[in-house]
Design a protein around this nucleic acid. Sequence first.
DNA 1: AAGGAAGCCAACCGCCAATTG
DNA 2: CCAATTGGCGGTTGGCTTCCT
Length: 323
Amino acid sequence: MVHRCCSKQKIKRGLWSPEEDDKLLKYVTTHGHKSWSSVPKFAGLQRCGKSCRLRWINYLRPDLKRGSFTDEEEQIIIDVHRILGNRWAQIAKHLPGRTDNEVKNFWNSCIKKKLISQGLDPQTHNLLSSHRRSSTCTTISTTNQYSNSIFFMSSQIPNSPMQTRQTLSSLPKAQTNTFQTPPTIIPSQSQTPNILPYELSDLPCEPSFENPSNICSSSYMNPSKVRFSNNENNNIWVSSIDAEDLRVQPLEEEGLESQVQVEKDKTYEKGIDHEIKEAGKGNLETNGYLESSNFDFGLLESLLSSDLMFHDLNYMDELAWNF
DNA sequence: AAGGAAGCCAACCGCCAATTG
DNA sequence: CCAATTGGCGGTTGGCTTCCT
């Protein structure tokens, strides 16, 4: 079926010729593309506007990066996909110069197979059932072998004396690591009214989120640290916990809070927050991981795009932190 | 060397949401 | 407010290339 915008004109289809590319490139670089539907007419192309747009975005745009994906880009795709699922446009935003189509093709042709060969479900990033049979769900070492990230959420009110057991969930990782001995994290009483004690050995294999007013992430890529974040009525604070001394270290709550808020505001300006939330919804529906939760993908995205994560630490570590 | 299979990727399709008149 | 149009996105297809037998 021909798209509505194409129905009124005689349109050419299929691969673009160098001459067509030249026409489109010249027109868009000199006149821009206020309305894609009028581009083919003014550029002298027998194509529909949609086709012109696609050709520009996927091939002619001057800021496109050429060549094969780097290992770093591949890891970013895997990490972001773990959270967003098949939101290729969103994933591509984290890879400057790459298009959603490119990311999608790379995923389908390479990454998917790689994950499957590692015994991971490319959609859920969980162990495939055939691989799960031979593994034990109750030991951290088994979970570690395939995971570098954990998430948990709780309903705990900050400063509340009430403490309930955390439910941890693991999100598998497409690479192995050498972290073997999980620390038991017992926050010091004076500093940790918001953080509940839990043991990593309590990690279940199946992800489960309960009352997600708090979000916590940890990374086995960087097992010495655990980062906690909390979002209460738009007052966001982020703190990190050093698992080696097992004490929570609030990270300059005031300053960081405002910094995060600034980043969040920026994100709102771009409308990304909403997009990520929407993306999150879709992913939840698809994967069934976070059903009935209100996981804050806005916060997630603002942290993702925040200078916070790019300045101090290795990018991949930070992705793991914030996911 | 030839032919079939598999892989890759550009482009299309169809749906949806936003915009416009 | 509503219908038409447009832009954007994810899924899919088909043709070209590479690999294997």
